[in-house]
Design a protein around this nucleic acid. Structure first.
Lengths: 213, 213
DNA sequence: CTGTATAGATCTACAGTGTAGAGGCATGAG
DNA sequence: CTCATGCCTCTACACTGTAGATCTATACAG
């Protein structure tokens, strides 16, 4: 009955994947479906509605990995697997970045993924009163990372020390001077993401330990 | 000489503040300056260039608090003050959110603020090889928070437990069930931000301690 | 089979967008 | 006076989202 809606979303996702979010217009989507632009409105409501639905679809994809996630017994590995799933999904569909922070995630799928993190934190021994806040902390970091990575904040400009420092007189950036050798090295982003996750896991463990005492 | 450029940016920021990012068009900015749209191009290059310049201005404002920041001796308080400065700035100009993740921050001002965090982490005793990564971790969290807060991800829809759970059968959200009392309470976002910062500070301290051993 | 209701698609039109390209105009130099 | 230079304006184009009216094909009642 609403197969048409799915068809529209399929087309929109395909366009976003190959031409970016900017390529998603009512006209382009309509043409891909083989219909006039105005025919989309009864199905998705609005351009904003279309974008919301696209985001919902992506969150649904994360959610589909939930059964696999639930099987992982160690909460640390569960968090890590969840993070990697989300990251690799956003790498395949970089445009989600532009939608992630704009609307609260209220679809049933999104709630389910939040619940997975709740459970992981509870398994870790975090007191329930702290779980919602920590879930937001962890997921905010993950979203921030994902957005930075596919959005370009981690782009070359941020890294090249020569480019950054050339515009300022010497000695004004003592911090940069001190870490210069490691700035020049180049970054293994996969390793960095893992290291960050390890640190966050450690942080959660500390909080759980503190709560036990 | 490039006073015109500043005038244009002033106008663009004013429009963004009162009408949002969507209200910033070449035409609207030009009209505010009292000039035709095409006259902006020599000064800002592009619409993208205009937006970049606007983001640069905002980062410059954070930077202007650097002298004050440098005076704070305890690195923990320095990080906290920095975070609060950035947060309150974004609360006054919510539109920066839409720009934060899109382009690497390469303006001299941005580099200077990064350097402040480098120094704080070095003062904390973090090994220099880990400093760039940790700076990215901390600033990614901060950016994520800021973007979530002014972008609407922390909006009402995400919180109301009734709304979230009504769409799913009972028992499928064990995590939510466990933390329900605290979900229903409502969130003090100021306190949550502070608590998050405390946790991150603690994490940095742990890493520094581990490095010393 | 006919008449009609209904839901969906279509067509047209409007106000808005970024910006290419050509022309105008006032200033300062030779 | 002539010319060049730099900034500005004007026009035009292809595009955007979508309001409003119209058309059409299907389903059902008589």
């Amino acid at each position: 009955m609403s197969g048409k809606r799915e068809e529209i979303l399929d087309a929109a996702l395909a366009i976003a994947d190959e031409r970016g979010l900017a390529g998603v217009s009512m006209r382009s989507v309509a043409q891909a479906v083989g219909v006039t632009p105005m025919a989309l409105y009864p199905h998705v409501g609005d351009k904003a509605g279309l974008l919301d639905a696209m985001l919902g679809r992506m969150l649904g994809l994360v959610f589909q990995s939930a059964p696999k996630l639930a099987e992982v017994t160690d909460w640390r590995d569960r968090v890590r697997l969840f993070a990697h799933t989300a990251r690799s999904l956003s790498q395949g569909h970089p445009w989600v970045t532009g939608l992630l922070f704009s609307r609260p995630a209220v679809t049933p799928d999104a709630v389910t993924t939040v619940d997975l993190l709740y459970q992981a934190l509870l398994d870790a021994g975090v007191p329930p009163s702290e779980v919602p806040r920590l879930e937001r902390l962890v997921s905010t970091y993950m979203l921030g990372w994902i957005a930075s990575e596919s959005g370009g904040r981690f782009g070359p400009g941020t890294l090249d020390p020569r480019g950054r420092r050339g515009q300022l007189p010497d000695g004004t950036l003592p911090g940069h001077d001190a870490v210069m050798p490691w700035l020049a090295e180049g970054v293994d982003w996969d390793a960095e993401f893992d290291a960050d996750l390890d640190d966050l896991v450690m942080m959660v463990e500390s909080l759980a330990a503190k709560a036990r005492a």
